[in-house]
Write a protein that binds this DNA or RNA. Structure first.
Lengths: 148, 148
DNA sequence: TAATATAGTTAGGAATACCTAATAATCCAA
DNA sequence: TTGGATTATTAGGTATTCCTAACTATATTA
């Protein structure tokens, strides 16, 4: 199989992320719940699960439940973290509303490497980090003035 | 054909962008130059050109040269503009080096809508816009201190 | 526990976006 | 003007990622 070191497609990262959240907020990730969460049909999930299993990112047996392997968990956490950082940059710094921020984070998380994401996290802390100078407030005013 | 109102795939946006740049910086966009620029094989270009033509974004006849239609030009400009804004945010605000910024902009430009891109442009102007307060300088120092 | 509802999988197919190899058109220079 | 180099296309194939319809396994409940 040998796709060990290859990086995941955006689609497979989404599946991994969904499995992570479902396992966290309850018990086991069921195929139907993954399908609902990602708005795909159930057979698409079956295919994705097989692909993730062949990469040793999940434990999967047909009709059995799905759990993340150690590697899978590590990779999922990276994706989830990226998502979180992007979303809070969009909402807290740029002032984008939650739903749009959520969706954009979901699309952008696959496009940005760790270097940029780390800096974005830094910028969010720097600008929105409870500082007395209220930079974000000034940026909002600037946006209002220039009609952005 | 009727894909008029549908939004373009990331791939087709890349082709449109390449055609725009080649047309601008010289004369006509040739198939081979598009292939070289996007690092794809020539037959892939033929397919993409047919697809763009069916959407009325380019003028294309086999063995003829390629030019953007009015609509195509408008769409290409939007993509190019997004790219430009993202890249300058990455370099000027986040301090990412040019090549990485270039590549990341190329990947992210398809994921972010106009609202977020406009705000990013605003933020870049706000923070790096020749202001006496040198926010970017302070952010760099903050990054250094927190090892980002 | 047997009938039924739900969940999961197979089977088969479509769209996108690539590829290589082979062929056809076009261009250029002797 | 014609033959060789270059460029573009066709033909045929692969991988991904999605779909619907049909079937099978599992779970629930009467």
């Amino acid at each position: 199989m040998a796709h060990n070191r290859e990086q995941l497609s955006a689609s497979l990262e989404d599946y991994l992320e969904a499995i992570f959240h479902l396992s966290a907020q309850g018990q086991v990730a069921r195929s139907k719940d993954i399908a609902d969460r990602l708005h795909v049909a159930r057979p698409s999930v079956t295919g994705a699960l097989r692909s993730l299993a062949s990469r040793r990112l999940i434990h999967y047996k047909p009709y059995g439940f799905v759990t993340l392997t150690r590697t899978g968990n590590r990779q999922a956490q990276r994706v989830v973290e990226k998502h979180r950082i992007l979303k809070s940059f969009f909402t807290e710094v740029l002032g984008i509303k939650a739903t749009e921020a959520q969706e954009a984070a979901c699309r952008a998380e696959h496009a940005l490497g760790p270097e940029i994401v780390d800096r974005l996290m830094g910028l969010t802390e720097f600008l929105a980090g409870g500082d007395k100078r209220d930079w974000v407030g000034q940026f909002r005013a600037y946006c209002r003035d220039s009609r952005i």
